[in-house]
Design a protein around this nucleic acid. Structure first.
Length: 416
RNA sequence: GUGGGUGUAGCUCAGGUGGUAGAGCCCCAGGUUGUGGCCCUGGUUGUCGUGGGUUCAAGUCCCAUCACUCACCCCA
């Protein structure tokens, strides 16, 4: 019986790694422009950290975490909590008034896998601590927009406000009585939700429920004055930056710590997993975790989902050039020489390879072609004797004789 | 946790009503005694997911089981 990877855990093979690297490199480049610094965090944390931040009543904490029950530690299901922990632990609020941080890495949730959803998945997590300004909310969304446009992926932005501890309880009551008036018309799930988390009823996907809540009271209409002003300012700043968005009054977040602004970048090309990037404001979270009273906002981008989008976009990827030079050696003596030459060229910084198994020249040329080698040099006993060998440009087919000793210098000229 | 779909070569997939396994791609060799891509010729690779049942005979029918996958739930 072959040993296979766990369900929901995937190998990322070399061809895909090229796409992953493009995503990561683009992200780092764009984030640098927005003055973000990278932070690297551990994958294991105390279970308590997640229970306190994400909320012990959420599905994530209740049934999706990989927890070592005997040790009270958990593989992180998301990055925000860890990042807050690090921020507090290292007193980062004292280093500068506003911290702009991001991190990229694997997260773990024991969910049933499906398209765009794995048990080990990867996120780009972006957080800004230390400012409550609505400008920041808009700035983060424009950052998301820049990331997508830089990668050539089209998404649409939806925003909402969830209010704050001052105004949400009141709204919750209003919504609850609205729901209770038509509780018989709602699906089983929604009836259950109406007790645990009435806001969730708003984003039920069943057409029947949708119709019922069509004109439900929205959070936005019941925001307190501060939250309302904040939301207006966020929208004003989005307009100022020319960021297009849609207000989705039914958008709800699954994590307890969100307040005020929430947003999602969505796509219609990933089946049921439409959100590629989602986030929101979480003023109060740091304090709740024992830190200073510092506001924060952030988002997470699902890298697998992003990679899927990039892959299903018309794939016109060029053949990758993996090598500067492939050395085709013919015969033992020439192969010894080639082996040493290859080593010297690598020491000088060139990408070189050769065939170690004394295959036919035809086969070696094929290998060179497969690898996308820029040049091939062919070395046999005749070439050793004359100290010069034919060097072939694989793109043009041109072939010229070159002194063996001059190959390195030739590459220095030919390769940027 | 719940429901649907699919399991045949390394990959993508054919195999009406049961008769001891196929194509394309990939890979390898040759055509071209030392030259890649295109072309031609030939070749390698299978416990037909697994276990049981019906039958003279099962990839094909029945049952069970596992894996993968999509969707619900939830979420990035």
């Amino acid at each position: 019986m072959k040993v296979k990877a766990l369900n929901g855990f995937k190998d990322i093979l070399p061809d895909d790694v090229l796409i992953w690297r493009r995503v990561e490199e683009t992200a780092r480049k764009v984030l640098e422009r927005f003055h973000f610094a990278e932070i690297r965090l551990p994958v294991l944390e105390k279970t308590e950290l997640f229970a306190r931040s994400i909320g012990s009543d959420t599905d994530i904490v209740e049934k999706e975490m990989y927890t070592f029950v005997d040790k009270q530690i958990t593989m992180r299901p998301e990055a925000t909590a860890s990042l807050m922990r690090a921020y507090i632990e290292h007193n980062m609020h004292g280093l500068r008034p506003v911290q702009r941080l991001f991190t990229i890495g694997p997260m773990f949730r024991h969910e049933r896998p499906q398209k765009g959803r794995l048990r080990q998945f990867h996120q780009l997590d972006v957080e800004v601590l230390g400012s409550a300004s609505p400008r920041l909310d808009a700035e983060l969304m424009s950052l998301g927009e820049s990331l997508f446009s830089e990668l050539g992926v089209s998404t649409s932005l939806e925003i909402n406000s969830l209010g704050c501890p001052d105004c949400r309880p009141g709204y919750r009551q209003i919504l609850l009585s609205f729901i209770n008036e038509r509780i018989d018309q709602l699906c089983e799930d929604c009836r259950r939700r109406s007790v645990n988390n009435p806001l969730r009823v708003l984003d039920c996907k069943k057409p029947g429920c949708r119709k019922q809540v069509e004109d439900a009271p929205s959070v936005i209409e019941h925001l307190c004055e501060n939250c309302s002003t904040h939301f207006t300012e966020v929208r004003k700043n989005l307009d100022l930056l020319g960021v297009e968005y849609l207000v989705n009054k039914f958008m709800v977040r699954g994590l307890d710590y969100y307040v005020r602004t929430t947003f999602e970048f969505i796509t219609d090309q990933l089946g049921a997993q439409s959100a590629v990037c989602a986030g929101g404001r979480y003023d109060g979270l740091i304090e709740m975790l024992g830190g200073p009273k510092v506001p924060g906002i952030g988002f997470a981008m699902g890298i697998e989902r992003l990679v899927l989008l990039l892959k299903q976009r018309d794939g016109l990827e060029e053949k990758m050039e993996e090598l500067d030079l492939f050395i085709a050696g013919l015969g033992d003596e020439a192969s010894d020489f080639s082996f040493k030459l290859m080593h010297e060229l690598r020491e000088r910084g060139y990408r070189a390879d050769m065939d170690l198994d004394s295959k036919s020249l035809k086969s070696q040329m094929k290998q060179a072609d497969k690898a996308g080698a820029r040049f091939v040099v062919i070395i046999g006993s005749q070439e050793l004797e004359n100290k010069q060998a034919p060097l072939r440009n694989m793109k043009t087919g041109e072939q010229t004789d070159l002194q063996l000793a001059a190959i390195g210098d030739f590459l220095a000229n030919a390769v940027d």
